[in-house]
Design a binder for these strands. Structure first.
Length: 551
DNA sequence: AAGCCCCAG
DNA sequence: CATTCTGGGGCTT
């Protein structure tokens, strides 16, 4: 038996929410007449998903159009090649779920993991609260674990029901939920009762749930390549993976991966719910039958680029690199493979809003780089065959507007530009001399309702200013307004890392997006330090971080 | 940092 | 088997 099995801890409480046939639900909202007919969502030659009426005919994910039509001659089809509507609805769902926890991880467009530890603790503080569960329970409940996970999971089942109700009431979408002490089990158990239902699993039934998958390729995290590798040493079933000597797995995978895989087979998953933020890349791709002419390539790229620029504009950030993806078809081997090339782009093309973005001259400039990238992949002087073109923007800077307005604000309203005594900024600090001057322009009639003792401190004003920013409509703002979006990876995914040069107590008081901004700025300057050694200036220029460094 | 591969829905 | 249209992450160079 895997030694980790006896050490598995159940202190976490995780909900997995999965929207029912998501694309199909969005299409019904766009066209309610679809509600009572079997229909599928089509991309090129493929039915990528279908409603439940169609599934009764045997329609399955990624079925060929011709096969689907044979099974269900009356199948109605809607085109789903443009993901915009699905994507925007998806982010609305994530935004709703973020009301329950700051730790929400997106998976694809239709799934979210939520770590509800804090909410569960809150609910358990209330002694009048009668603990019970709602929804389906997977497995037996005769020998439940006594570590305390039972009540947490039951409470989480109530939270999951609230979440699903909210998603239905606010957005009209039905969903399923799985509740467990780790992500793996939450995800698997979620699919045990569908659609529009939820299921909780207690740790004592973890093995039963894993065995119900039958084969290793059904374990989330084990894909085609891994299961093929496992097959070479005759591992097919869950039990095979449980019982194989770890030394055998080490012949195929490094020891960390080997351990990870075997743990999965026991339903053990230590991975944390990662806070999802703004996407790290924004891309579009279009597959096609065959392209063999450079002119055609340029036309396709133009169309893709124009669509992509609209998405990037809506995102609000400034992209730094662009990547071209080409799928080459080899007529001899009858196989295709993807090749990519990327290059930096001139940020000036994006700095002055929509006009600059859609300016045809700028589009042309980007197109020239793209065709340059294309010729790196394809010898255009020789015959070539392309079956897919893709574009994506990959690295981003926040738009400078935010930082500039903050810096301006600070310079205007603070006598000193750098904050030397950080504690004085804390609104909980009651020492009288710490109060900052309060310009009358920031007095508001609604003051009394804001905070118990709304002290006019610099930090309060700083936060207020940000709230004002949040309220305003601006073309550079995200379409997904409420989302807590971060574009950085952090050492600790519960809290945002505090740059060592900044006082942590102040850092924690700052709004999340400012924390992100400070951290990413610190990382940039740190990288410069690495590159240039001691001669580099610590923090240079008129940066946000500069206002918060301890002196 | 660039490009490939693997994972997911 | 992959097929669509994405997006994240890890490995190698």
């Amino acid at each position: 038996m895997n030694p980790d099995y006896y050490k598995d801890e159940h202190y976490r409480t995780i909900i997995h929410v999965d929207l029912d046939c998501f694309y199909a639900q969005v299409e019904v909202m766009k066209n309610p007449e679809l509600k009572n007919v079997p229909f599928g969502v089509q991309q090129k030659n493929i039915v990528v998903t279908s409603n439940y009426l169609a599934r009764e005919f045997g329609i399955r994910k990624c079925m060929l159009l011709s096969d689907a039509k044979q099974m269900c001659p009356n199948l109605v089809l809607v085109n789903g090649e443009d993901l915009n509507d699905y994507r925007s609805m998806s982010y609305k769902v994530t935004s709703l779920l973020q009301k329950y926890s700051n730790s929400v991880e997106r998976l694809g467009l239709d799934e979210n993991f939520i770590d509800v530890a804090n909410l569960v603790d809150e609910k358990l503080q209330d002694n009048t609260f009668q603990v019970h569960s709602v929804g389906n329970i997977f497995g037996n409940i005769e020998t439940l674990c006594q570590c305390g996970c039972e009540v947490r999971l039951k409470v989480a089942s109530l939270i999951a029901e609230e979440m699903r109700k909210l998603i239905y009431e606010e957005l009209g979408l039905t969903s399923c939920a799985g509740i467990a002490h780790n992500k793996l089990l939450a995800k698997i158990v979620c699919s045990k009762h569908k659609p529009n239902q939820q299921t909780v699993i207690f740790p004592n039934s973890a093995l039963e749930l894993m065995l119900s998958l039958n084969s290793v390729e059904n374990i989330p995290g084990i894909g085609k390549a891994t299961s093929e590798a496992l097959r070479t040493i005759n591992i097919r079933t869950i039990q095979d993976l449980q019982n194989i000597a770890i030394s055998e797995l080490n012949k195929l995978f490094d020891s960390e991966k080997a351990k990870f895989l075997q743990n999965l087979s026991y339903g053990i998953d230590k991975s944390l719910v990662k806070r999802s933020g703004k996407p790290l890349s924004i891309g579009l791709e279009d597959s096609c039958k065959l392209i063999s002419a450079e002119k055609e390539v340029k036309e396709k790229l133009t169309e893709l680029l124009k669509r992509l620029l609209i998405l990037v504009e809506a995102d609000g950030r400034i992209p730094k690199t662009i990547k071209l993806t080409v799928r080459k078809f080899d007529k001899l081997t009858k196989t295709s493979r993807r090749e990519t090339r990327q290059s930096n782009i001139n940020p000036h093309l994006f700095t002055s809003g929509k006009v600059a973005l859609m300016n045809s001259g700028n589009v042309d400039k980007i197109l020239i780089t793209l065709m340059g990238l294309f010729r790196k992949i394809v010898q255009v002087r020789r015959p070539f065959h392309i079956t897919l073109l893709g574009l994506s923007f990959n690295k981003f800077n926040e738009r400078p507007d935010i930082r500039r307005s903050l810096a301006l604000f600070l310079r205007k309203d603070l006598e000193v530009q750098s904050i030397t005594s950080i504690e004085n900024l804390n609104s909980n600090d009651s020492s009288p001399e710490s109060a900052a001057p309060s310009p009358s322009s920031y007095r508001e009639s609604s003051d009394q309702e804001c905070e118990p003792t709304p002290k006019r401190t610099k930090l309060n004003m700083f936060k207020r200013n940000l709230m004002e920013y949040d309220k305003c409509e601006s073309p550079c703002k995200l379409r997904v307004q409420d989302l807590q979006l971060n574009s950085e990876k952090h050492d600790n995914n519960q809290n945002i890392s505090c740059p060592p040069s900044v006082d942590e107590s102040v850092f924690k008081e700052l709004p999340l997006d400012v924390q992100h901004e400070l951290w990413s700025e610190y990382k940039r300057t740190r990288n410069e330090l690495v590159n240039f050694g001691n001669r580099a200036k610590r923090v240079k220029g008129n940066t946000l971080l500069n206002y918060f460094v301890k002196k």
